[in-house]
């Protein structure tokens, strides 16, 4: 009933990316993303992150995140690249929820899907939009990671080899970390009829669960930990350490989130009126 044809899938992904770079939502994401990182790189360019490698900076990072994360990121590594990575991981939810908000939402609202469904199966459309969003996000993160690496080489005294390996791991980790968020937005964008509403739903769900976790955590920390697993960022602790081993561990968890969100989204999309 919903066979997956690779050639159609490839065409749909190519068309999705082509349109993303010409549509308001794609351009808006790239402009905001680019402006944010441009501003941040100007702050990091003068060696602004190096104080984080000091005991005081390490203490603050340890207090804000985790002492292990602080040690792992800022001892014996490029502070500029580590600061970039820390900020990138922390802002991933909002950028990715925005970038991936319009996978099917606008097409449902404008009924453009009615031009597609005589030609493609719904599973092809659904998967292509997920992969298209993932490629767009991956491209954006790889680009800023490369810029961060170049800046780290110029600003920090860390060896180029270390920066290259850390940069590679940082880029891959950001992509892995963003996948559950993209899958969450696959789910959100099949239930509403506009990209704006889809982004709002995604961000609201994320914030509401975050607040819920914080409130529950006051009285019942264990229950809060359990509720926190609803969020797509449960791999954040592993990813933030920027170690190959922990990143590989997160690779085992990420597919569970992608499949869970993706499956619920698909069940809704396959059965909904368009």
């Amino acid at each position: 009933m919903n066979a997956l044809r690779l050639s159609t899938l490839k065409s749909l992904i190519r068309q999705d990316l082509y349109y993303a770079l010409r549509s308001a939502r794609g351009v808006l994401f790239l402009v905001f993303f680019g402006a944010f990182w441009l501003w941040l790189f100007t702050k990091l360019s003068g060696g602004g992150a190096q104080w984080l490698a000091n005991p005081e900076g390490n203490f603050i990072i340890g207090w804000l995140f985790d002492p292990d994360v602080a040690r792992s990121l800022f001892v014996g590594r490029s502070a500029t690249l580590s600061a970039f990575f820390l900020i990138a991981v922390s802002t991933t939810p909002f950028f990715v929820l925005f970038a991936a908000s319009d996978q099917t939402a606008n097409d449902i609202g404008s009924k453009y899907l009615r031009f597609l469904t005589p030609r493609c199966n719904r599973i092809e459309i659904y998967l292509a939009r997920f992969v298209g969003a993932a490629i767009l996000v991956a491209f954006a993160y790889l680009l800023v990671t490369v810029v961060a690496m170049i800046m780290a080489v110029m600003v920090d005294k860390t060896g180029v080899g270390v920066i290259l390996m850390d940069g590679l791991l940082a880029g891959l980790s950001l992509i892995i970390y963003s996948l559950p968020f993209i899958a969450l937005m696959s789910l959100c964008s099949v239930v509403v009829g506009s990209a704006g509403l889809s982004a709002l739903v995604g961000i609201s769900v994320y914030v509401v669960v975050l607040v819920l976790v914080a409130v529950i955590g006051i009285k019942m920390p264990q229950a809060a930990d359990f509720v926190a697993y609803l969020l797509p960022n449960s791999t954040k602790g592993l990813i933030l350490q920027l170690q190959w081993q922990t990143s590989l561990q997160s690779l085992l968890i990420v597919p569970i989130y992608v499949l869970a969100y993706g499956f619920i989204g698909w069940k809704i999309f396959s059965g909904r009126d368009i």
Binding site: S23, A24, S110, K111, Y112, R114, P118, C120, N121
Partner: peptide, 15 residues
């Protein structure tokens, strides 16, 4: 797929 063509009444093209 490809054997049925449809003119939907109120579907909008991409901008």
């Amino acid at each position: 797929r490809g054997k049925v063509s449809i003119l939907p009444q109120d579907a909008a093209l991409l901008k």
